[in-house]
Amino acid sequence: MGLAGVTLDLGVRGQPAAMRLVEVMLASRRLPHALLFTGPPHSGKSTLMRGLAAYLNCAAAGPSGPCWHCPSCRRIADGVDFDVRSIEVEEGHGRIQIEQVREFERRVALTAVGGLFKIAMFPSAHLLTENAANALLKTLEQPPPHTLIMLAAPTRDAILTTVASRCSHLRLYPLAAGELRALVVERTDASGPDLELALEHAFGRPGWAIDILSKPGQINEFARQVETMLAAIGPDCSDADRLQTAADVATSGRSAAERRRNAIGMLEWLELALAARRLPDRLERWAADAATVRSGLTRLHGNTMVRPAVEAVFLALGRGQPIAGQSSAKT
């Protein structure tokens, strides 16, 4: 796995610090048994995990990365490789359940079928239930040989401290404006107003921009909802209008799962906007507001009904008050 003088390509762009750490690990042949990738949603964490998994088990891997043509690479790209599994939230649940972790433990105890490594990816490790996280902890403490466990979360403190402490940490960051534009233009055929809207609302997240541009008309609908949402949480809006806007957000989508995803996406955008100080009229209390949004996201991930969760966030932000039971945040 000699990488000297060659740029390793695992599918992500604009993440030199994380890629340098990966290259050092591979060059030293001392790959940790567990890696934790953190960064904003859609910043490239899952892409990097999948690229690293492919590289480690690729039959024709070279200094520049996996071949993506051998049977192992194709199976990993399609998500059907027996040795590489992605453990995600199942339909009908808001979090990763302990039964899923136990099934992973049974699989990881088996010898790899076609690759060198048994690899497990948790793209939403922050959604592990406490019992599931504690069950995973046992494997992290005593992993079987040739096993790699990769977790992804928005922040290090979003997962159980004892789990995070047993992982090597790699941080991914939002892309700079020029890097974001170049990557999105390269991977989509978008141009004109749609492209500009996506870049404006992406906050440096290439995966988000690429995904929303793949759905005709979606970026315009999202921008419209953002404008309506910002008006609803303003001081001049009535509670009745806030509740109506919350209802519109909570009912956007054909299925229950899609409506939940859309609501989560809207609140994630709002949290990023607050953290980036992009909302001038909320600068003085951005941290408290971000904590309110985060509380709403926690409820949505916890399988709370979508509409009441969104209503609670909009009412709290509009009134300048925390949600009942929400921990305080310093501004």
Rank of each mutant, 00 (worst) to 15 (best):
A120F: 04
P145D: 02
R187Q: 14
A125S: 04
A135R: 04
S191N: 12
L172C: 05
A190P: 09
L140G: 11
R102Y: 05
R106K: 13
A164R: 00
V184S: 08
E141A: 02
M121Q: 10
L128P: 09
S191M: 12
L195G: 11
L180H: 11
L148T: 10
L116R: 15
A182W: 02
A120K: 09
E130H: 07
K138L: 07
R107W: 06
L148M: 01
A153P: 03
K118S: 02
L116I: 11
H146G: 00
A133Q: 05
Q142R: 11
A133E: 05
D157G: 01
P154S: 11
K118I: 00
A125G: 14
L151R: 05
G178Q: 15
N134S: 00
Q142Y: 13
L183W: 15
T139S: 09
P174H: 09
T188F: 04
V108W: 11
E141P: 06
S168R: 14
R166P: 04
A109V: 00
L136G: 00
E186P: 05
G114R: 13
T155N: 10
I159F: 00
P193D: 08
H169N: 10
L116F: 09
N131K: 01
T155H: 13
R187I: 10
N131E: 15
T139P: 02
S168V: 14
S168T: 13
T161G: 01
L172S: 04
R187E: 14
P144C: 06
L175I: 12
H169V: 05
F122C: 08
R171A: 14
L172G: 13
P123C: 03
V163M: 02
A112Q: 06
S165Y: 11
E186Y: 03
L110G: 01
L183T: 15
S168H: 15
I159W: 04
L151S: 01
A112F: 07
L160C: 11
A164I: 08
D189N: 14
V185D: 07
A182R: 09
P144N: 05
L160V: 02
L110A: 02
H126A: 12
E179Q: 15
P174W: 07
P174I: 08
E105G: 07
D189M: 14
M121K: 05
E103Q: 10
E196P: 10
P144H: 08
G114N: 13
F117H: 13
S191K: 09
G192E: 12
D189T: 14
A190Q: 14
E103T: 09
E186W: 01
E105S: 14
A132T: 03
P174A: 03
E130L: 15
V113E: 14
V184A: 08
R181H: 13
E179A: 15
E103H: 01
K118N: 10
R106W: 12
T188W: 05
V113I: 10
P145L: 07
L127Y: 06
M121S: 01
D194M: 09
V113S: 14
S165P: 11
L175C: 10
K118T: 10
V163C: 00
A152S: 06
A109I: 08
